[in-house]
């Protein structure tokens, strides 16, 4: 998934905690188009949402989604992803900061820009007493700028998400997976330049999840920019060209996916017996491995430039029984855990 599309990225380098200390920018007049961000499908500047309760759900984030990217917007439940997406789409107003979609300011330019944006926000939502198809007809009829051939477009969207056979079933009789698919179909009712998909794999079985990944891949192939959020890192990690990771309202990490994980240090995993765990940790530290963590009989450490073969030799020389040893490429989750010091699934 790392093709030429990423070349235009202005966000090529990871910016851990980049948004954290930036001062609030004075909001410019709303209708000014975003000159600098013309190459960006989504851009925010110090975007902040403070709820009336005083809770800061989104804290000064600078989102940068290049055109053509598949941007994985990741973070635990409650980290501010959905609130950010709602601000991007003009459903809620930011407390401070600005947002642009396809180079136009939101929410001011919503009427012009939203027809080019397909969205699935916080799960699918339809009238339960209408059929899946009737729900799509309703949405399309509400679209003042919808292209002609409603019937053809709706049938195509339904086929695309595999709901052709269930189109006339009442929405309330749909399974969670079918509801999610109908939500995707609604986002695909007309050609879009940008798709914003909030947790599109929620409630889908592994088969459905794979299909969503395939669909996202197809759309990206055709040139559509996709912003896809998820609280399950592993689920969408592989389809993304870019990644932004939220934690407690802040964007702690953003950039090209490959550069985020490959340049981060490789990890080493060792298993020995309980007696020798401490000794093994000693050997690893002496060798120059960092962040050595012992968990019972298992150890983890960052390899740095050291080769696993050298580690094996050193351990054996020190008389430590090596029951298992492996090198792992770091996953996004490892990167996240290292940056925030907490498990990915831990909500606040």
């Amino acid at each position: 998934m790392t093709d030429t599309r990423t070349a235009a990225s202005p966000a090529a380098s990871p910016t851990p905690g980049g948004a954290a200390g930036s001062p609030r920018a004075t909001p410019a007049p709303e209708e000014i188009a975003d000159q600098a961000g013309a190459e960006l499908a989504v851009r925010t500047k110090a975007l902040t949402k403070r709820f009336r309760s005083g809770q800061v759900a989104v804290n000064g984030i600078d989102l940068q989604v290049p055109r053509g990217a598949v941007y994985g917007f990741l973070g635990p439940n409650g980290s501010g992803k959905t609130t950010t997406i709602r601000m991007l789409l003009g459903l809620i107003g930011p407390s401070s900061g600005q947002a642009w979609l396809l180079g136009r300011p939101m929410p001011a330019a919503g009427t012009d820009v939203l027809p080019r944006v397909g969205a699935l926000i916080e799960g699918p939502a339809f009238h339960p007493w209408l059929s899946g198809r009737a729900n799509l007809v309703r949405l399309d009829a509400c679209d003042a700028t919808a292209p002609p051939d409603r019937k053809g477009r709706i049938d195509e969207a339904l086929e695309r998400v595999g709901l052709g056979a269930a189109a006339h079933k009442k929405y309330r009789q749909y399974s969670l997976g079918m509801k999610q698919r109908l939500g995707l179909a609604a986002a695909l009712l007309r050609p879009r330049e940008l798709l914003v998909l909030d947790e599109p794999t929620n409630g889908l079985d592994p088969q459905g999840t794979r299909e969503v990944r395939r669909l996202v891949g197809e759309l990206a192939e055709a040139g559509t920019t996709v912003l896809v959020s998820s609280h399950l890192l592993a689920e969408i990690e592989n389809v993304c060209t870019h990644v932004g990771i939220m934690s407690t309202g802040r964007l702690v990490l953003q950039g090209e996916r490959t550069s985020l994980t490959s340049q981060s240090d490789r990890q080493l995993w060792v298993r020995t017996d309980a007696e020798h765990a401490a000794g093994a940790a000693q050997v690893l530290t002496t060798l120059g491995l960092t962040e050595v963590v012992t968990d019972g009989t298992e150890l983890q450490a960052l390899l740095g430039e050291i080769s696993p073969a050298d580690v094996t030799r050193a351990l054996v020389t020190a008389g430590i029984p090596v029951l298992g040893l492996a090198e792992r490429a770091p996953t996004l989750e490892d990167v996240f855990v290292r940056l925030t010091g907490e498990g990915f699934d831990v909500a606040r």
Partner: peptide
């Protein structure tokens, strides 16, 4: 209540 309000606003319906 059905959540369809957010869909309508993002269609967009002013």
């Amino acid at each position: 209540a059905t959540g369809t309000l957010r869909s309508l606003i993002t269609v967009p319906v002013p």
